[in-house]
Amino acid sequence: MTTTTPTRPAARTIYPTKKVTNPVLTAVIRHALIICFLVIMLYPVIWMVAASFKPENEIFNGLGLFASRFTLENYASGWSAGSLNFSRYFMNSFLVTVLSIAGNLVACSITAYAFARLEFPFKKFLFALLLGTMLLPSQVTMVPQYILFNQLEWINTYLPLVVPHWFGVDAFFIFLMVQFIRTLPRELDESARIDGCGHFRIFSRIILPLAMPAIGTTAMFTFINTWNDFLGPLLYLNRTELWTVPLGLSAFLDATSESAFGPLFAMSVLSLAPIVGFFIVSQRLLLEGVATTGLK
């Protein structure tokens, strides 16, 4: 590393940390910087939450968070705004999300078990295929999938949104689980096998319970992705009574005139609430998942 002569620099840098730095001061500056950044970053969302409780005419009255009075009327009028029906949309979103999560958990975990633990012909090739699909832009399959689901008369049903998850199309989650299962000690499987357990029982009794962190992460990310998904419902759901929350919000936004954003904000806040709620419950797990596998 050193390229200079050995004598002088040694003398100069014996106590390199003697620089005049006050640890308390730097800590304070660091925290202040972080908090500043956080406030600026999250301010639009905080403002939106505050605005959803403001009377309609005060929403665009400046940057402040507080209005003359606190009101829930935005929530009441947004929930049943015109032809839109948010109780319906929330139910629909919930249904699609639950079915997608279930599908992803079943399909991804059994696929991951096979890749992580079993030996079989063409394993390398199939695994390469799996990794390849992780980089595949979804637009390439979007048009033919639409045509396929159209032929099956699945348009205006939830099947196009849910069924692919049951076939493990989310390669990312399979990869996540493979990586996780690989870290589990193989001795457990071996001893179970000696005790006479078959592959399915090793999977369900040993691997599955131990892989709960990876399964939880998958469930959480599937929840977020499905709940937020806009393009899928946009393609497949045309009838308003089938809409999910993102479609409802988008239609609401287009129908809203410049002066009536209160109800829109109220519904936006409600649409984000489940995600944030889940995150608060599970943030440690989720962030470990991001850090170890690079999920977005």
Partner: peptide
């Protein structure tokens, strides 16, 4: 990725 934030 949500519509709510894009709308905001």
């Amino acid at each position: 990725a949500s519509v709510a934030i894009a709308a905001l």
